[in-house]
């Protein structure tokens, strides 16, 4: 969803945090052995230094002591230790119909595995079935195609009864009061800022507070869309939101502001950008404007004479 653009109301946008393709996790020797056995249809625990069988195996016991190298086959018969009934599953859950989570201890193991327990078909919101109880004897249901992951076990099922992940986090984020006001100005083609009542410095965009004095700021100031490049980088690493490489990212001190903002500079060969260059915002056609910095494609030279370094050195 693009940022919502109603005249009133807070500015919000949806956001997803997702590493493309999912994280790649190396598992090390102990988890690796477990997952390999799991893929091949066997449950193994590992013998701890104190003689117990840790399941699922880790490189260490719960006191941090290294385990022995002895792997022990356990189960597949297992016992439910405790459980939680999920009448309305969430999107990331292993079933889209009611099921239970359970701590399950295979015969021969001293610790339990958390996994899903399938008790059959239920309507959404169904009451907890009476068959679900501590002590229930269960077995794993193996996935037909196994790849070596904890979900190679599709779920556990009661003995002799009926038949029954990548990471993505989504958000809706608020721009906040100060940024909403600033971007509302940008939607009208204006740069707005605040003047601090204590130090008198002008912040564009405004933050609603002065980071130096730690006080709220309220006095609104409008500054022009012209400014001076204080310093810059020539980027040769492509970025989806920037023009073709090389592109220039520059700190631009807008006239009347006391703080430079980072923005793109174009309309001039990258090797001719310099400190002190005078620039002006290049706006998209007015009909494309919204409450977003995307209204400004980049900054480009005005053709005015450069500002001497002495006049901008306090801003770099």
């Amino acid at each position: 969803m693009p940022p919502s653009d109603t005249e009133v109301g807070a500015l919000v946008a949806d956001h997803a945090l997702e590493f493309p393709g999912g994280y790649t996790r190396s598992v090390g020797p102990v988890i690796g052995r477990f997952l390999t056995e799991l893929r091949d249809g066997r449950l193994v625990g590992v013998r701890t230094a104190s003689g117990g069988v840790l399941f699922p195996p880790l490189e260490y016991d719960d006191d941090g002591e290294a385990v022995t190298g002895e792997f022990v086959e356990v189960g597949p018969d297992a016992t439910v230790q405790t459980y939680a009934w999920v009448p309305r599953p969430l999107p990331g859950h292993p079933f889209d119909r009611p099921f239970a989570w359970a701590l399950i201890k295979p015969d021969g193991a001293d610790t339990a595995l958390l996994h899903a327990l399938d008790l059959g078909e239920f309507e959404p919101g169904a009451k907890q079935p009476k068959t679900l109880r501590t002590g229930l004897r269960v077995r794993p249901k193996w996935r037909a195609t196994r790849t070596g992951g904890i979900t190679d076990i599709e779920c556990f099922r009661p003995e002799v009864t009926m038949i029954g992940a990548p990471s993505r986090v989504e958000y809706r984020l608020s721009a906040g009061k100060a940024l909403t006001r600033f971007l509302t100005g940008i939607a009208e083609g204006r740069f707005l800022g605040h003047r601090c009542g204590v130090c008198g410095k002008v912040y564009v965009p405004m933050k609603g507070l002065c980071p130096v004095d730690g006080v709220p700021t309220t006095e609104e100031v409008e500054v022009p869309d012209t400014g001076t490049v204080t310093t810059y980088a020539v980027n040769n690493i492509p970025d989806p939101r920037a023009p073709a490489v090389p592109f220039v990212s520059a700190y631009i001190l807008l006239d009347g502001s006391d703080i430079a903002m980072l923005a793109l500079v174009a309309g001039i060969p990258a090797d001719q950008v310099r400190m002190g260059l005078r620039v002006k915002a290049a706006w998209k056609p007015r009909e494309e404007w919204g409450r977003t910095m995307e209204n400004i494609t980049w900054f480009e030279p005005t053709g005015e004479p450069d500002v001497p370094f002495e006049d901008i050195q306090d801003y770099v």
């Binding site: 859950h93 292993p94 989570w101 958390l114």
Partner: peptide
């Protein structure tokens, strides 16, 4: 390795 891939959530764990 053993818990997050199951998708078990905060309320479910609390319910256990």
């Amino acid at each position: 390795y053993y818990l997050a891939p199951l998708g078990v959530d905060q309320v479910s764990l609390a319910a256990l």
